[in-house]
Simulated scan of single mutants.
Amino acid sequence: MGANIEESQSAESDRNFISKQSIALKEAKETKYWLKLLIKSEMMTEAQVRNILDECEQLIKIIAKSIVTTKAKLGK
């Protein structure tokens, strides 16, 4: 996720930025899945994972908003 966000900061175009951010969004959602799986498999408690899961949710919202804003800029 972080590598794609970093790459998007030096994107060659708005479309390239959206592409990199979209990949980061998918990675963030995958991370959320794995965190939930840690809880369901009882490898970690919800209390142990809660803060990281909350941060992941916040990142998902930020990345999604960034994509929406850039698409609006392009007139899509």
Score class of each variant (00 low, 15 high):
Leu59Arg: 02
Thr70Met: 07
Trp34Tyr: 14
Lys32Gly: 15
Tyr33Leu: 14
Ile60Ser: 03
Trp34Arg: 10
Lys26Thr: 13
Ile67Ser: 05
Met44Val: 09
Leu37Phe: 04
Ala64Ser: 06
Ile39Trp: 11
Ile67His: 05
Gln21Ala: 15
Ile60Leu: 07
Thr70Asn: 07
Gln21Gly: 12
Ile67Pro: 05
Leu59Asp: 00
Leu53Asp: 02
Ile62Phe: 00
Leu37Gly: 02
Leu59Val: 04
Leu53Ile: 00
Asp54Met: 06
Val49Leu: 08
Val49Pro: 08
Ile18Glu: 04
Leu25Phe: 15
Thr69His: 04
Glu55Tyr: 06
Glu42Val: 07
Ile23Gly: 14
Leu25Ser: 13
Leu25Asp: 14
Val68Met: 00
Ser66Cys: 01
Ile62Glu: 00
Glu27Cys: 12
Gln21Asn: 14
Met43Gly: 07
Lys29Asp: 11
Lys65Trp: 00
Ala47Thr: 10
Gln48Ala: 08
Leu38Asn: 07
Thr69Tyr: 01
Lys36Asn: 12
Glu30Cys: 13
Glu27Ser: 15
Ile62Pro: 00
Cys56Gly: 04
Ile60Arg: 03
Lys40Glu: 14
Leu53Pro: 03
Leu25Ile: 10
Arg50Val: 08
Thr45Lys: 08
Thr70Phe: 01
Ala24Met: 11
Glu42Gln: 12
Lys40Gln: 12
Ile62Ser: 00
Ser66Ala: 06
Ser22Phe: 07
Met44Leu: 13
Met44Pro: 03
Leu59Ala: 01
Ala47Val: 09
Arg50Glu: 15
Glu30Asn: 14
Gln48Phe: 03
Ser22Leu: 11
Lys32Asn: 15
Asn51Ser: 09
Ile60Met: 04
Ser66Leu: 01
Ile18Pro: 05
Ile63Phe: 11
Thr69Ser: 10
Cys56Leu: 03
Gln58Pro: 01
Ser19Ile: 13
Lys32His: 13
Glu57Trp: 00
Cys56Trp: 02
Ala64His: 05
Thr70Arg: 05
Ala24Lys: 12
Met43Asn: 09
Asn51Gln: 06
Ser41Gly: 07
Gln58Ile: 12
Lys29Trp: 09
Ser41Gln: 12
Lys20Cys: 14
Ser19Glu: 12
Lys65Thr: 03
Val68Asp: 03
Ala24Pro: 11
Leu59Lys: 03
Asp54Ser: 08
Ile18Leu: 04
Thr69Arg: 04
Asp54Thr: 02
Ala47Phe: 09
Ser66Met: 03
Leu53Thr: 04
Cys56Glu: 06
Glu27Ala: 14
Met43Ile: 15
Ala64Leu: 02
Asp54Arg: 03
Lys61Met: 03
Ile67Val: 05
Lys29Glu: 12
Asp54Ala: 10
Glu27His: 13
Gln48Val: 01
Lys65Leu: 02
Trp34Gln: 06
Thr45Gln: 10
Thr31Trp: 05
Asn51Ala: 10
Gln21Phe: 15
Ala28Thr: 10
Thr70Gln: 06
Leu35Pro: 08
Val49Ser: 06
Thr69Glu: 08
Trp34Cys: 05
Cys56Gln: 08
Asn51Gly: 06
Leu59Met: 04
Val49Gly: 04
Lys61Asn: 02
Asp54Gln: 11
Ala64Val: 02
Thr69Val: 03
Glu55Arg: 10
Leu38Asp: 02
Val68Pro: 01
Ser22His: 14
Gln21Met: 15
Asp54Leu: 08
Asn51Trp: 00
Leu35Cys: 09
Thr70His: 01
Thr70Glu: 05
Leu38Glu: 07
Leu25Trp: 14
Lys32Arg: 15
Glu46Ala: 13
Lys36Trp: 10
Glu57Gly: 03
Ser22Pro: 12
